[in-house]
Design a protein around this nucleic acid. Structure first.
Length: 967
DNA sequence: CGGCTCACG
DNA sequence: GACGTACGTGAGCCGA
């Protein structure tokens, strides 16, 4: 090995090393960082091994996934180094390492030897100097060098064929990263360090100069000596004096931070070529410290740990890129390399095709105690979706895809002669049978010691529940983001990835296409599917790593853990339950509407003098305002067209015009037909029920939203519309029970704004709108007329929304001046309201968000907009959000408590729907009364014990065979 | 795909 | 005095 011809530049080496890429691992640096970065971990004997475990995994990763064909691990020798002779205080004030860490120093050396890697240290020198020495030698010998460390003191080595790799973040550190950190190129790093100093190592530097200033000075003067020589030219007096006064400190600092690259060393470069580890030694080491996941992963190399391996290497979950050069001695430790030349830094993901591989991933997840999970299906609608595959991620950049239901791509059009198999496609080979795979996954996904991380896990839970798989415990990155940054941006994975990881995930469109040529995920080729699906799990895990720690630091743990996370399984169950809908009623209504619409259309055309598209605001506007010359309020929309909204048509109708009235009637029926009676029929599934989907991370205030279909906006305000609710029915022998909060937002406004008169009224159970009317308009309660009460009611709503004279005038159809006077009278009577409004505006402007009584943050970025309209919009939102948001918090708390309360009481009711202040249940007839009382009690007490409201919460109960009757 | 309109709390 | 108006949603239709 040593007989290769020497190069002149490599005079110090004993021969030309038989490798091309040398990895110099900073063992001492690693252990400190790993100790604090990796969660605590103990052997059964109580020995702390977290840093050693991380180190071992890191070595395996290097051996398998990098192109390293030479490795040396470098350590600090015990005792002082030559730097102490230069400057006695150097590293003098360092704390003793923690007790749990001390024994791990030896373990890491043991690990290094177990992998048959050289362990290098030298008295009187630090690891960094040794690394610098070998890096220089390797560079001169034409060998690429990667320094595995994140130590800033090593960054001076970067450049040319030398790069660094942060082993904990698994991130390369190149010239760019160094420049980001120090503001200069690597060759100037020591100059900057010398000026800035380093308090942790007691490197003095020049007082008052940090990295920023140092970089700027070095950028200007080139190097430390030139700067010191010309220090008198510095303009800032303080800085000039300090530089002159501390010039000698700076020179000593330079010597302290400059690494020696001439350390006399026994081991030479040619000894660092990879050698196969001794299986018994390695196995002994792994067993001694109980690194079971690693034992499993290396099972095929070490024998008999996982007995039923069929092909060597096949079960290994690690995908390694093919070595660039001839395979090194450990190449055979590496998994087969399916990954082609990927972009630098782009991880190659593993495709799991046999049970052994799946078991290895599961074992790794168990070992890690955390795994990100994502399912791929044939549809976004969980009711119709079929499971196609599952992806798992166990660490950043480490993920796999488990295909389960991929089929042959269907070719061409199906015709009458096609067999069902040709239409449906046949299951591809090389996939673990789905039930077998799920049998393996089931214990992992239910394992109480393994945290499952997902993005919008409710969806995956519903899919997996169909196969009898439950997921617990779990975290949801979408909800983490929602709790942390609700109101600032959306919480979809692509958006979060861009935002937090600076990475654009593979677009779904790129995999499945779009529009007419879109295919379902089960028709995607396995390799493509793997890239896409495993990336999702990988990103999800990385998002968790970014987001989860922020919960505690921003004091949002309770919001997440008490109100959001526990709601997920509750919502999943409500969605799964669905609500029974009588299609016959809807069909008959649709037919009725169709007939009446036809009649109305004839009349409208007659009145207009011609046929036109009534549903087109543009055409209607032309008829009304141009052809018929009706006077309008002149309100215009963004497109510049005059508005034909209901309020405008209402005014025109009030002026005695026939056409606007007819159009209003037509619109009402058209809306009911298209949005409700027609659309809902198509949403009824095979069980005769409609299953909505709740979005938990959409509404900025903390509310839920309902979609596909939206069951939170089923008509109720008009007689005609309410009929649609009669189609929502209970199963035979059951009753629908509706329990809704009475005036919850107004009650909360009274509490939050501290309006004593309102609180009093609620406490006494008075008619709150009548009370308001008597206060504001001076009418005694016993003489209250409906019109006055109606005005007061509008004002009360206005308060909740962030009232304005214009809005109130609009709502009541009165002059703005009159509305202004009402508001003034209101504020006069209830001054707490105005104080509250001002407080919210100030708070929101200072902090960017307002909070609910339960601590939820609602961000209102519009408050800082320079456009006054948008800013005022933000002000109103800031006023409304604590009220609406607190109400949302309360009903969420109730929803979480109701199912276990029913369970304890032995009641069989199912919670079906939530409509902001109402919960709808399907109850066995004989349990109506008991269930109603229980639900009412839970809802009324839902703020306690976290918040003690100064107003009572009241929930009203209704029941009947249909939602129309129950409401 | 944005705008308009309208259903709900 | 600007700016364009009540807070929060989702869905269907029209027309570019």
């Amino acid at each position: 090995m040593t007989d290769a011809p020497e190069t002149t530049a490599a005079a110090q080496t004993a021969g030309k090393p038989p490798y091309r890429h040398l990895y110099l691992v900073d063992g001492s640096g690693y252990i400190f960082r790993a100790f604090f970065a990796i969660p605590p971990r103990m052997t059964s004997h109580g020995l702390h091994v977290n840093a050693a475990f991380g180190f071992t995994n890191m070595l395996i990763k290097l051996l398998r996934e990098s192109d390293a064909d030479g490795i040396a691990v470098i350590f600090d020798a015990s005792g002082e180094s030559f730097r102490n002779a230069l400057y006695p205080a150097y590293k003098a004030q360092r704390d003793e390492p923690p007790d749990e860490l001390v024994p791990q120093f030896a373990m890491i050396r043991e690990a290094t030897r177990a992998f048959n890697l050289p362990c290098i240290e030298k008295q009187g020198f630090e690891a960094d100097d040794i690394i610098a020495t070998y890096a220089r030698q390797a560079r001169e010998a034409g060998i690429d060098v990667t320094v595995v460390s994140s130590d800033k003191d090593l960054m001076q080595l970067v450049g040319g064929s030398v790069t660094m790799l942060d082993p904990i973040k698994n991130r390369p550190i190149g010239v760019e990263e160094v420049r980001e950190k120090f503001g200069v190129t690597p060759d100037k790093v020591v100059e900057v360090q010398a000026l800035a100093g380093d308090p942790t190592d007691n490197v003095p530097g020049v007082p008052g100069i940090g990295i920023k200033t140092a970089a700027q000075l070095i950028g200007e003067y080139g190097d430390l000596e030139s700067l010191l020589a010309r220090a008198a030219e510095i303009k800032q007096p303080k800085r000039r004096e300090k530089l002159i006064e501390h010039a000698e400190d700076a020179r000593i600092s330079l010597k302290l931070v400059t690494l020696r690259d001439d350390v006399p060393l026994e081991e030479t470069l040619d000894q660092f070529g990879l050698k196969e580890p001794e299986p018994e030694t390695l196995k002994g080491f792994l067993e001694r410290y109980e690194f079971r996941s690693i034992l499993n992963r290396l099972a095929d190399k070490l024998g008999d740990v996982v007995p039923d391996e069929k092909e060597a290497g096949k079960g290994l979950p690690l995908a390694a890129p093919a070595p660039a050069a001839a395979p090194g001695p450990l190449a055979d430790l590496a998994a087969p390399a399916p990954a082609p030349a990927a972009a630098p830094g782009a991880p190659a993901y593993a495709l799991v095709r046999d049970e052994a591989a799946l078991e290895a991933w599961i074992a790794e997840a168990v070992e890690k105690g955390i795994v990100a999970v994502d399912t791929e299906t044939t549809s976004l609608d969980p009711e119709r979706a079929e499971l196609v595959g599952v992806s798992l991620a166990t660490a950043a950049g480490r993920a796999c895809y488990l295909p389960l239901g991929h089929r042959t791509p269907s070719e061409g059009e199906a015709d009458l002669l096609s067999t069902p198999e040709q239409v449906g496609g046949s299951l591809l080979e090389g996939q673990i049978p789905i039930e077998r795979a799920l049998a393996l996954l089931r214990p992992l996904l239910a394992d109480p010691t393994v945290l499952k991380v997902g993005q919008n896990l409710k969806y995956d839970m519903r899919i997996l529940a169909k196969h009898g798989v439950t997921v617990a415990p779990f975290d949801d990155t979408m909800l983490l983001s929602y709790v942390l940054e609700g109101g600032l941006h959306g919480h979809g994975m692509d958006e979060l990835s861009e935002l937090h990881l600076g990475k654009t995930p593979i677009p779904y469109k790129a995999v499945c296409g779009s529009g007419k040529s879109q295919i379902t995920f089960d028709r995607v080729a396995l390799d493509t599917a793997c890239d896409y699906a495993a990336e999702d799990a990988d990103i999800t895990l990385q998002l968790w790593q970014v987001l989860k720690p922020q919960l505690a630091t921003r004091h949002l743990t309770a919001v997440y853990e008490v109100m959001e996370r526990p709601l997920v399984p509750v919502l999943a169950e409500m969605e799964r339950a669905g609500i029974k809908v009588d299609a016959g009623i809807l069909r008959r209504m649709s037919n009725d509407f169709a007939q009446r619409l036809e009649g109305l259309e004839e009349e409208i055309y007659k009145l207009a003098g011609r046929r036109f598209t009534i549903g087109s605001p543009k055409q209607l506007g032309e008829i009304l305002f141009d052809e018929m010359g009706l006077a309008s309020q002149g309100r215009k929309g963004k497109s510049g067209a005059l508005s034909t909204g209901a309020d405008i048509l209402e005014q025109l109708a009030a002026q005695g015009h026939e056409l606007p009235r007819k159009v209003l009637d037509w619109r009402q029926l058209a809306k009911l037909k298209s949005t409700y009676t027609d659309a809902l029929q198509g949403q009824i599934t095979a069980d005769g029920r409609v299953h909505t989907s709740y979005s938990q991370a959409v509404a900025s205030t903390g509310r839920l939203s309902s979609n596909d279909p939206n069951l939170q906006n089923i008509p109720v305000r008009t007689e005609e519309g309410r009929k649609i609710r009669s189609a929502f029915i209970a199963e035979p022998g059951h009753t629908l029970l509706s329990v809704d909060y009475s005036q919850i937002e107004l009650r909360l406004a009274a509490d939050i704004a501290g309006v004593e008169a309102l609180r009093q009224a609620f406490a006494e159970g008075l008619d709150i709108h009548a009370m308001t009317a008597s206060q504001v308009f001076g009418v005694p309660l016993d003489q209250m007329d409906p019109a006055t009460r109606r005005k007061a009611k509008a004002i009360n709503f206005g308060i909740i929304y962030g009232i304005s004279p214009f809005g109130l005038a609009q709502n009541l159809g009165i002059e703005q001046g009159e509305a202004r006077a009402y508001i003034a009278a209101y504020f006069e009577r209830f001054p707490g309201i105005r104080d509250y409004m001002d407080r919210m505006k100030v708070e929101a402007k200072e902090r960017g968000y307002v909070t609910t009584l339960f601590g939820r943050r609602v961000h209102v970025p519009a408050l800082l907009d320079k456009n006054p309209a948008r800013r005022q919009f933000g002000e109103r939102a800031a006023i409304n959000a604590p009220i609406q948001g607190t109400a949302a918090d309360i009903i969420k708390r109730a929803m979480i408590r109701v199912p276990p309360a029913l369970e304890r009481a032995g009641l069989k009711a199912r919670m079906l729907l939530q409509v902001h202040d109402e919960l709808l249940f399907e109850v066995p007839d004989d349990q109506r009364e008991e269930t109603a009382a229980l639900v009412k009690e839970v809802m009324e007490g839902a703020a306690a014990p976290t918040v003690n409201l100064s107003v009572p919460l009241v929930a009203d109960v209704g029941q009947g065979a249909s939602w129309a009757e129950a409401h």
